[in-house]
Design a protein around this nucleic acid. Structure first.
Lengths: 322, 322
DNA sequence: TAGGTTCATGTAAACGTTTACGCAAGATAA
DNA sequence: TTATCTTGCGTAAACGTTTACATGAACCTA
């Protein structure tokens, strides 16, 4: 029975197949995952630990991943870690007990349990932000450094000289690489004369950080030609502050950000941004995942070489608006 | 062992408890949910079927529910039905096989499998939109009719005479009740002279519907004093269209909507809206849920009376901006 | 026809947990 | 002291699935 519904690679008489099919249809039989999970020691559940579902970009990513997982016979289990190590650990423990097949970290923070997972052989995929600890697990997302360079290139092409950058914490890969790429390109010989001032603080609420940073920007003696925000939410916060101060965006002060959530084209036409093609993330995650799962199988026989998983860089695009 | 970790109501020697605790701590034992699920026939998983995670209000609601469920020892499994009956059914089938403890429908559509679920005894909670079929299952959300009346009251207080309403499909409770409440109050004796014109179409993409509806509004010979949109997304679409046509919102044309997603206060200061307190939804869902689960237990003995579950109406608030 | 080979299917064990049941030892009562 | 009752704990069955292994039928070959 199990052999026919699951397509076990074993010879079955055609008649038997039909008989089973009929019985299945008649009884409306549906395999119960509890029994299977117990026997096989794993499930079809894949956990997605997202840092902040209140961020439209992240829920768009979650939505894309959910769709792709479902297409491939998995079930998504979605959690919100609020970017806090203890919550992330609690969830990871829970996922362990649930015997999930894999865990997808959409913006991870370092945590003890995550260290354990890296050892334990449970496949991990890091989306949007690389593994805080250099590891053999794949990253799915844009080339943040290149995106930073693109933004810098655009600023240079516009001849902007006075530049402000608003950032949140820079200890993680995404923000750090974006800033690094931006500064690299800016310091390029052909960059000419310009000043880049940095504003921002570390913390969890990007909206608020952006708001406060813009306050600092406006308190400067000289108003920047452009303000580059390292994420959409930072730009939203900055926008509120600047608008409240009577500035018209982008006429008085252009804003450029990274992420470009799906709502921007509707209600944030004042914002230019590097767009993460979140629709593509689901498929890329699946690709990374299946590569890992297969290499995991193969490795059971020959333990020697580490799995040949690699990052999946998806193309970004600078969208100019306003 | 099971007795002590689960706190079974049975006498256990204090010493044994300590011994077990020690062993659990030493071995880092964690009960595997597969075995438990198999034995008990149910899980700690609660499925949330949301119609559209791309809608910030819905992801905010999902986030709130997730938090509340976690607090109460459940695990949330989140799906996106895209408001389509066949996808919703596919998910419901999956949840059945997973033996989820309950299903929370955040904006449900009628579907055959949903009909089965109502019979099958799997607890259901309907959030934001009532069960399309009148049923004994609880609704959690705001009083949409009252919200509609509040908006009408505000319009009357401002003395607006020419009023446009933008709506999507009106076959479901939320939109229908909002519009009904609005019209009821408008037609109240003290309402005075005014005209209400309705725009909109049915479909899944509220953003696009709003955009097209606003196109129709602007094509009218007389420009309305206010445009009331039955959801945030409709307002976003309408805003884009109106802005594109050179109008300044809200100066040239105030917009009022329902939902008031968390981003509005940051980047949609031009929008007044009835706020759903999404932070409160999680707790309300838990209340509805535990009431059902308890009444379910009690009912196993006396089948006669239907469960005394009731709706949980949470307070809304009209936020005026701009 | 006997022996060997393949092929399809039946059988049973195992996964980890919960819980009904029963047993032993200690406490109480006669 | 013996009989009865309580208390704490050990035992085993059951949940539904997968899969290694056994069984037996049919088919081929010499």
């Amino acid at each position: 029975m199990s052999r026919v519904v699951n397509g076990t690679p074993v010879k079955i008489a055609p008649q038997t197949i039909l008989d089973v099919r009929k019985a299945v249809a008649e009884l409306d039989y549906r395999t119960q995952s509890a029994g299977r999970a117990l026997r096989k020691g794993t499930t079809q559940i894949i956990a997605v630990l997202a840092a902040n579902l209140g961020n439209p970009v992240m829920s768009a990513i979650a939505s894309s991943i959910e769709h792709a997982l479902r297409q491939n016979g998995y079930v998504m289990l979605l959690c919100d870690t609020h970017e806090q190590a203890d919550i992330q650990d609690e969830y990871l423990r829970e996922m362990e007990a649930l015997r999930v097949r894999a865990v997808i970290m959409v913006v991870a923070v370092p945590s003890p349990k995550l260290d354990e997972f890296r050892q334990a052989g449970i496949p991990l995929v890091f989306v949007n932000r690389r593994d805080p600890v250099r590891s053999r697990f794949p990253y799915v997302g844009i080339d943040n450094a290149a995106a930073g360079r693109d933004v810098a290139g655009y600023c240079l092409s516009k001849g902007w000289r006075e530049i402000a950058v608003i950032h949140a914490s820079l200890v993680y890969s995404a923000g750090r690489e974006r800033l690094q790429g931006f500064l690299d390109r800016m310091q390029h010989p052909e960059g000419g004369l310009h000043t880049v001032r940095q504003f921002g603080s570390s913390g969890l609420d990007h909206l608020r950080i952006g708001e406060l940073a813009m306050q600092d920007v406006l308190a400067q003696p000289v108003r920047p030609d452009v303000v580059v925000c390292l994420s959409d939410l930072l730009a939203y916060g900055a926008y509120k502050q600047a608008s409240g101060a009577g500035l018209s965006i982008p006429r008085d002060m252009p804003l450029i950000s990274f992420d470009d959530g799906p709502l921007n084209q509707w209600i944030a036409q004042w914002l230019s941004a590097v767009r993460i093609p979140y629709e593509l993330i689901g498929d890329a995650v699946i690709a990374a995942l299946t590569a890992m799962l297969e290499s995991q199988h193969g490795n059971s026989s020959r333990q020697d070489k580490s799995p040949p998983v690699h990052d999946h860089i998806i193309p970004h695009q600078l969208i100019i608006r306003g």
